[in-house]
């Protein structure tokens, strides 16, 4: 199946897990995305703060938004800081329209996100 239309690449910088997300997340692959992201986030042995890089995320649908909200809640419950950064204008608009920009921590740049989650 060609459902892997998203890609995740993780790196660890100064005790922060940065996950670069690219491609599209929609109803067809949201579940896959969720489990891949959960695996990536829980791979490090300690519970690191997590920042998702959305610069190369071209499209997210409501199913994808839900996944982000689930991850945010899970990490929140685990006292792990969580932020998104470098959203494209279109993806940012979806977060704004749904009001989720008020619920999930969103930053313009990688540096701002790192600063926010390392507090």
């Amino acid at each position: 199946m060609d459902d892997h239309l998203f890609q995740l690449n993780a790196e660890e910088t100064n005790g922060i897990l940065i996950v670069h997300v690219s491609g599209r997340v929609d109803s067809v692959n949201a579940e896959q995305f969720h489990s891949s992201l959960a695996t990536t986030i829980h791979e490090p042995e300690t519970d690191l703060p997590v920042a998702l890089d959305f610069e190369k995320l071209d499209f997210i649908s409501s199913a994808g938004l839900r996944t982000i909200l689930q991850v945010a809640k899970q990490l929140g419950g685990n006292q792990q800081k969580f932020a998104l950064f470098s959203l494209t204008a279109s993806v940012m608009e979806i977060f704004q329209l749904s009001g989720f920009d008020r619920i999930v921590d969103i930053h313009d740049s990688r540096d701002a996100a790192i600063a926010a989650v390392s507090q």
């Binding site: 938004l65 839900r66 909200l69 329209l97």
Partner: peptide, 18 residues
């Protein structure tokens, strides 16, 4: 729960906005 819904019907609500 909120997680199990298509974000509180927000998917369709967003569509209406767009």
């Amino acid at each position: 729960s909120l997680e199990d819904r298509p974000i509180g019907g927000a998917g369709v609500a967003l569509t209406k906005q767009m």
